[in-house]
Structures are given as structure tokens and as C-alpha cells.
Design a protein around this nucleic acid. Structure first.
Length: 199
DNA sequence: TAGGCCATCTGGTCCT
DNA sequence: AGGACCAGATGGCCTA
């Protein structure tokens, strides 16, 4: 008899198992809802959002990973990446659909974000494209290291706005990045302030 | 229409 | 024993 074969079980035992299974199904449903809520929460911290279509679960996780990488690179190099560099980091490992969406939001050519194998299909493309003029010299572009120690938070909070879609439905991700930039600048000015930090 | 994504169910395993 | 977690199976929905 297979472990799951209940044909020899008494009706009372079968009923008991059914009840247990139904209860387990409910818990599993609730657990998955909790997982989905957490993913929804995570989506709010990712700088790329669209109004009509939300990122899939797997793409949310991939983009979150890439976003963390991008922020780490900014901290390590103490420089803001170009839009194309930023897009490259964010697009790492994403599906073609999401990559296209990303390219559209960041206003770079999608073909410049494709992996090398797909990039070969566009061999006539220049390796490093010119950014649109308004992206090459964005009005709010500012090097992190250029901020004076006495500059206020509000003045130093000039995130790379050209990284975000004008259709951005929520300012939350923008604000989150802005705050990270502030913390980065504070850290660079006085790392000792953060030495005792524990989450 | 095929493929991707999702919710749900299910049985197995591990832990308390 | 019962709950949490996991992975496989299944069917529905949507989009390119």
C-alpha cells in the first residue's frame, strides 16, 4: 500500500485526514499570501515601476538584486553611474521583456542592454551610444563627492532624476534613493557616526 | 496558439 | 500531533 493510499482507512480516519488537509491548505494559502505581500512591499522599493503592469515575482527579485548591486557600486566608487551604466547594472539577468521596459523607462536603447549573444544580432550598433543631450547634462546631476561638509541634506538630495520614468506613479522609490544618497554622503563625511549602527 | 505567470492543492520532510 | 516550509502538479488567465 502506498503511503497516500487511504482505501483501507476507516471512514473516521479519512474524515480526519480530510479535515487536516483542508486546514493545511488554508495555512498554505495564507503563507503564500504573506509571501506575495512581502513581494509587493519589495516592489515599492525598486526604482522601476509601471502603472499598468507590475513586475513578476522572479523579475522583482532579480531587479532588487541588481538595484542593490547598483547602490553598492555607487558607494564603492563614490560616483554616480551614467544612465547607460546604471541601466546595464539593473538589466543584468532580466528577461527581454523587462529589459525593454527598463530601457524605455531609463531612455536608453534596449539593444544596448541585451546580453552579448543577443547583442550580436545588432552588430551595426555602436558599443557605447551617445546619451540624449538632456541626459548627458541632466540639470540635477551632481557628483556625490562634490558636496561640501556643510551642505544641508535638502541641498544634497539631488538624485539622478533622469533615471526614472516621467510616468513614475509614486515618488516613494525616488525618495528612497534620495535618502540612500544622503546616508552615503553622511557616511563619507563622517564614517565614525555609523560605526555603532546595528539594524 | 504557445508560453509565461499565477494561485491553489497536495504530499513529503523537518521542527517544536 | 500539528504547523511551517518546500517542490511538483494542475488549471486558468493573459499576452506576444
Amino acid at each position: 500500500m502506498r503511503p497516500t493510499d487511504t482505501s483501507n482507512f476507516a471512514p473516521a480516519e479519512i474524515s480526519k485526514r480530510k479535515i487536516r488537509r483542508v486546514k493545511a491548505n488554508g495555512r498554505e494559502r495564507a503563507r503564500m499570501h504573506g509571501l506575495n505581500d512581502a513581494l509587493d512591499n519589495l516592489r515599492e522599493y525598486i526604482p522601476i515601476t509601471t502603472q499598468h503592469q507590475k513586475l513578476s515575482k522572479i523579475e522583482t527579485l532579480r531587479l532588487a538584486r541588481n538595484y542593490i548591486n547598483a547602490l553598492q557600486q555607487m558607494l564603492q566608487t563614490n560616483e554616480q553611474p551614467t544612465p547607460l551604466e546604471y541601466a546595464h547594472t539593473l538589466a543584468n539577468g532580466l528577461s527581454q521583456t523587462t529589459t525593454n521596459m527598463l530601457a524605455n523607462l531609463l531612455q536608453v536603447q534596449p539593444r544596448h542592454l541585451l546580453p552579448p549573444s543577443q547583442f550580436d544580432m545588432f552588430s551595426d550598433a555602436p558599443l557605447l551610444p551617445q546619451h540624449p543631450q538632456h541626459l548627458q547634462n541632466p540639470p540635477h546631476h551632481q557628483n556625490f563627492s562634490s558636496g561640501s561638509p556643510t551642505s544641508s541634506i535638502s541641498n544634497s538630495c539631488s538624485p539622478p532624476q533622469y533615471y526614472y520614468s516621467p510616468n513614475q506613479p509614486s515618488a516613494a522609490p525616488l525618495q528612497a534613493t534620495c535618502e540612500l544618497a544622503q546616508y552615503q554622503q553622511m557616511y563619507l563625511q563622517n564614517p565614525n557616526r555609523f560605526s555603532s549602527y546595528s539594524p
